[in-house]
């Protein structure tokens, strides 16, 4: 079964283009400097429309997660993580932690992570893996 994939909108296209180019792109406000996610054409802190796209470092830490023991059909059959990571720039995003055992022992809160990308045809998804891996 094909993986469930996002359908970009004009407001989010830069993010998905970035993933395809191997770059995690965030936005920040030109006026108040707030970095934010998910993408939108206005600053969620001050409402300014003066916002810019910038490449994030790709560094993050594990903020919280579950290990789904009843995976969706497109996710395979093995239990897998559904995680939220805290990006170095501040915003948090949902992702899967990959390249590591999907166990509570291997997935320690606050462990350092780095972004990695996987292509699924029209879309490239950002995942995170242990920083030392």
């Amino acid at each position: 079964m094909d993986r469930t994939l996002p359908q970009p909108t004009p407001e989010t296209q830069h993010f998905w283009d970035g993933c395809a180019a191997g770059e995690l792109r965030l936005q920040r406000c030109v006026d108040c400097r707030e970095a934010y996610f998910p993408p939108r054409p206005l600053c969620p802190k001050c409402g300014s429309r003066a916002v810019e796209v910038f490449p994030a470092s790709g560094k993050a830490s594990l903020y919280s997660y579950v290990i789904n023991h009843r995976p969706r059909p497109d996710m395979g059959t093995a239990p897998h993580s559904i995680a939220v990571v805290a990006l170095e720039e501040g915003p948090r995003m949902m992702t899967n932690i990959v390249d590591c055992p999907q166990t509570p022992e291997a997935l320690q809160l606050d462990m350092p992570l780095k972004v990695t990308f996987q292509n699924f045809g029209a879309i490239t998804l950002p995942f995170f893996k242990p920083a030392e891996a």
């Binding site: 993986r3 994939l5 359908q7 909108t9 009843r70 969706r72 559904i82 949902m94 899967n96 879309i123």
Partner: peptide, 9 residues
């Protein structure tokens, strides 16, 4: 776009 791709059911 930002949650469903990661397997939330």
């Amino acid at each position: 776009q930002f949650e469903m791709p990661y397997g939330v059911t």
